[in-house]
Write a protein that binds this DNA or RNA. Structure first.
Length: 776
DNA sequence: AGCACGCCGACT
DNA sequence: GTCGGCGTGCTC
């Protein structure tokens, strides 16, 4: 794929088809199903209104279908309404759902007594496109519909509307008897209504004074909404001047928004090329078009920082509604409610923001679309970028994917004409791309117990001598990734897990990065009892920092990783110090790779480029390219191009050669060819079937039985079962089967058929991961 | 997800 | 003889 910069690439095709399109399944028609063409097919969203006062209700529980209830036919709640209904021995809040016609037909033959709905909530019903999306996403990911609905309803009781809080507002009248205390309270209340406690503390008096003023007529009791509305984005506010490329891209996107149709659109441009301004313009266009329209900007969790929110505020004169894992309960409720009302028009959020109850979503932007953080790996497993595209395709609005290093999936979608693409060239302020070179560690070997090659050391020396900053990148937290007994060879692992304990020397502890387990570093080997025999093997950032401090005793050296000892504020402080030029050498994990601009950083050293290539899952090379391209891109500034040195023992690896030559498109083409030959995504479909059990023998039996039960089908290949790379985790053993199919096979239908033929084994749990990214 | 039903160990 | 462990199954 090559982009003529400023020109849209990709044949025009009207189809809103994505790779995610799947057919509704009908169990006994396997042949038809398995080889059906891929066009997505509208799921039934129409109301089967023939049955008067009967409604289906879906509960936010891991249940695959909705349940039928009676209701007063006079005020039958529309689809999407929140209702409370008796369910088993208790009452549960659910959502009125489209009834499944097939299910209904079955039931009509049976006499069935239905219970009645208890209550219909006053809240705005969920939008039809969200209901449709939940149905589709459940079918695609193979999770029960109710589990998907739970993603929408995770904010407890938010649909009940505001729990009004009592506040006191100044009436404007002064009671006859005034005191200094009363004056102070009235002064505090004159700005905005506040609670008795707030007024009392603002005035430095007791709450008795506040209550007294109510009786005396100076204050009035009012109910206030505890969730203040969001300030509307100012759509007329002028953004910065756009470059020619940016303007072209913005206009191109605006045309598609104007046409009100779905398109996946890749915004392709290096860091600093101004992708953000292009999609800000798109947001403005989408929101201007319709006064009720809403837009969502998705970011990988890690990029969702205060600086980004401030940038949005600067552009639109108002902070967006935020959505991420760090929000407090109250903040979460505020965003959820205001989004549901349509009041919050611009949301900036992490992947789960996709499940907010937008009544009129008209645009989704997926920034850093290649980022692995979009893949939810726990609970309901889904890929937010893929679901975002599917949501836009089904609801008929555009979805923008922005990246400097787009995923192969997206690039192939562009090449095959399913997505559009606009390219941005050049860096802001004419900053140059860094000069990247490889250091072959076989020729340029560091001394024993050291990790920096002579060449890299020499470059750092040069940089120090001209007072420019250096970033040494190593994607490994802690001091050493492996702790080994020199006498008996025992490797320290977490209890019940096949995970190595990582030494963290700041805290003098051994830590498991997978389970969270940690222990003080023992002085005796737990197996052979040898004293002081435990040895640190391999480097982490702390160890490289130790080496750097030894080598450059006069340089200002800092370590930065997600667990830099004293706490999260430290991270901010280190980043600020780096920006301010108060650090000469920063040794960091990937937390430093994203979204920070260090003006005096001119040298980036990648300590171990081979780290991400080990293990060899299908996306290892791609991820390495993306990560290292981002990290090395940190080097350089307007007046002076930066340089990056990549240490590797695999200097012939095509990924690294492509990085050094800057030929991204050649790398992608080679990578695509490799995937195509093997039939891996995006040229084939892949699903992981994971089995877990505390009982290893039972797990083995179950996995083999499952393999044996796999139906033969043309274009379907079963791989495994194989033990997970981390076989035991927290006392649970895990095995995996992979299903690889041709692209025209309905993978979900195959899996349903397979699972039907598999006897459930007691104590063995099965989870499915459609299009897996993690193979741990 | 809850919650009940149901079938095997250590207690009044 | 009961209290209670959590495996299995159901909820319109």
């Amino acid at each position: 794929m090559r982009f003529a910069h400023g020109l849209p690439v990709g044949r025009d095709r009207n189809s809103a088809e994505t790779d995610l399109g799947i057919k509704r399944t009908s169990m006994n028609k396997m042949q038809q199903l398995l080889y059906s063409d891929d066009t997505p097919d509208a799921l039934a969203t129409k109301t089967a209104d023939d049955t008067g006062h009967r409604v289906s209700v879906l509960f936010p529980l891991p249940l695959p279908k909705a349940y039928d209830y009676l209701c007063d036919s006079a005020d039958k709640p529309p689809i999407g309404s929140f209702v409370a209904a008796p369910f088993g021995p208790r009452e549960v809040v659910g959502v009125v759902w489209p009834s499944d016609d097939g299910e209904r037909a079955k039931k009509k033959s049976k006499v069935q007594k239905l219970k009645s709905i208890n209550q219909v909530y006053d809240a705005q019903p969920l939008a039809a496109d969200l209901v449709d999306f939940i149905d589709w996403a459940a079918e695609y990911t193979m999770y029960p519909k109710g589990a998907m609905l739970r993603m929408v309803m995770r904010v407890k009781d938010a649909f009940e509307g505001p729990r009004m809080q009592t506040a006191f507002a100044a009436t404007g009248e002064k009671p006859a008897r005034m005191t200094p205390q009363r004056e102070a309270v009235l002064a505090a209340a004159s700005t905005a209504p506040q609670s008795a406690g707030q007024l009392a503390s603002a005035a430095g008096v007791s709450e008795a004074v506040v209550r007294g003023l109510v009786g005396a007529g100076g204050l009035l009791k009012v109910d206030v909404d505890p969730d203040p509305p969001f300030i509307a984005p100012d759509l007329l506010r002028a953004g910065p001047m756009l470059s020619g490329d940016q303007q072209y891209a913005a206009d191109f996107v605006a045309t598609i928004i104007e046409r009100d149709e779905h398109k996946g659109i890749l915004i392709d441009g290096v860091t600093g090329s101004g992708k953000t301004e292009v999609y800000f313009a798109a947001v403005a266009a989408a929101l201007s078009k319709d006064p009720d329209a809403q837009a969502l900007i998705l970011l990988p969790e890690i990029a969702l920082t205060l600086p980004f929110l401030e940038r949005v505020e600067e552009r639109f004169g108002a902070a967006p509604a935020p959505w991420h894992s760090e929000l407090t309960g109250a903040q979460r409720r505020r965003t959820w409610r205001r989004v549901a009302e349509g009041q919050a028009r611009l949301v900036v959020g992490a992947r789960s923001a996709l499940f907010l109850p937008f009544p009129k979503l008209k645009l989704i932007v997926v920034d850093e679309e290649h980022d692995g953080a979009y893949k939810q790996e726990e609970g309901v497993i889904y890929h937010a970028r893929d679901l975002a595209v599917a949501r836009g395709a089904r609801a008929g609005f555009p979805v923008l994917l922005a990246s400097a290093t787009p995923s192969l999936e997206t690039v192939v979608n562009v090449d095959e004409g399913r997505y559009e693409a606009v390219g941005l060239s050049g860096r802001f302020n004419d900053a140059q791309m860094p000069d990247i070179s490889l250091i072959d560690m076989r020729d340029d070997t560091p001394d024993a117990g050291k990790w920096l090659s002579p060449k890299l050391v020499e470059e750092v020396d040069k940089n120090l001598s001209v007072n420019e900053q250096t970033l040494l990148f190593l994607n490994r937290r802690g001091y050493a990734p492996l702790t080994l007994c020199r006498r008996c060879g025992h490797k320290m692992t977490a209890p019940g897990s096949d995970t190595m304990l990582v030494e963290h020397r700041f805290e003098n502890r051994l830590v498991c990065h997978h389970t969270g387990f940690s222990m003080p570093k023992p002085s005796v080997c737990p197996v052979c009892k040898a004293v002081d025999s435990l040895t640190a093997c391999g480097p982490g950032v702390e160890r490289v920092a130790e080496e750097a401090k030894e080598r450059w005793p006069n340089a200002r050296i800092e370590v930065l990783s997600s667990d830099t000892a004293p706490g999260p504020q430290t991270m901010r402080a280190v980043l600020d110090a780096m920006k301010a030029g108060e650090i000469d050498i920063l040794i960091a994990t990937q937390v430093a790779a994203k979204g920070h601009h260090f003006p005096n950083l001119t040298l980036v050293g990648v300590v171990d480029a081979d780290l991400g290539l080990a293990g060899g899952d299908l996306r290892a090379a791609e991820r390495t390219y993306q990560l290292l391209s981002q990290v090395t891109g940190r080097a350089g500034r307007a007046e002076k191009p930066g340089r990056a040195m990549i240490q590797t023992y695999q200097a012939d690896a095509s990924v690294l050669k492509a990085l050094a030559s800057g030929d991204r498109d050649a790398f992608l083409a080679a990578e695509a060819m490799g995937r195509q030959e093997l039939g891996f995504p995006p040229y084939g479909r892949l699903a992981a079937v994971m089995l877990r059990s505390p009982d290893e023998a039972a797990l083995d039996r179950a996995a083999n039985a499952m393999r044996a039960a796999a139906p033969l089908a043309d274009g379907v290949e079963i791989l495994g079962p194989a033990r997970a790379p981390i076989y035991r985790l927290r006392g649970i053993a895990r095995m995996r089967l992979l299903v690889k199919t041709r692209r025209n096979v309905n993978l979900q239908a195959y899996l349903i058929d397979w699972l039907k033929r598999t006897k459930p084994q007691s104590g063995v749990r099965i989870t499915l991961d459609i299009n897996p990214y993690s193979f741990m």
